[in-house]
Amino acid sequence: MNPSARLAFEESALPHLDSLYRVARRLCGDPSEAEDLVQDALVRAYRFWGGFEPGTNVRAWLFTILRNTFYSELRRRVRARAHVSELSNLGEPHGYTGAAPQELPSPESAVESKASADRVHQALAEIPEDYRLAVVLADMEGFSYKEIAEVVGCPIGTVMSRLYRGRRQLHERLKASSASPPAPAAEAPVSLDAYRKRGHG
């Protein structure tokens, strides 16, 4: 790739690195896996940079690649897990299941989980991925409905439905974790102009 294309890619993609990492973190849970996911997604984006249409929404394009990379990796892991499961059924010595041992929460994480941010992240981790992605993109990263629809590849009506269900499940889990979520701030609905500006930021 010529130096100007490289520069253009870096100028377009790297400002979204933090946002990509945050979303990857919510998708993967594990910080190292989130780093790997962002790295893989951006290298993939760089390989296909020639196919990006200038003037279109680069943020939505990058997050679409992030999402696709995440699901490719997830599918690969599911297949690997199924293979391990098949092997274990072939007759391992008793006691060995072939599955990775369950990780118990450490005392440190138990203490940390009392923190409000951890409660929110924990509650997020418990809701289905499709809902989680919609909620994280909308409420943590400020994506418009149109952008989310582009990233997840579904109609805007489905985005609204996922947001509704995702927030509702999140609210239930936060309530169940014994401390109620912060009281709803007296928010005035955002104006349509503000939304349009946000959507194309």
């Binding site: 290298v43 929110v120 943590m140 927030r167 609210h171």
Partner: peptide
């Protein structure tokens, strides 16, 4: 109200930054 409460909880959560090492590794990959 529930929907707004959930949204406020998410907005109030601290915003993490990507580790600087990630940026360096990414540039090496490029």
């Amino acid at each position: 109200e529930e929907q707004r409460a959930a949204r406020s909880a998410l907005r109030a959560a601290p915003r993490e930054s990507a580790p600087a090492g990630l940026r360096a590794r990414l540039l090496l990959d490029l």
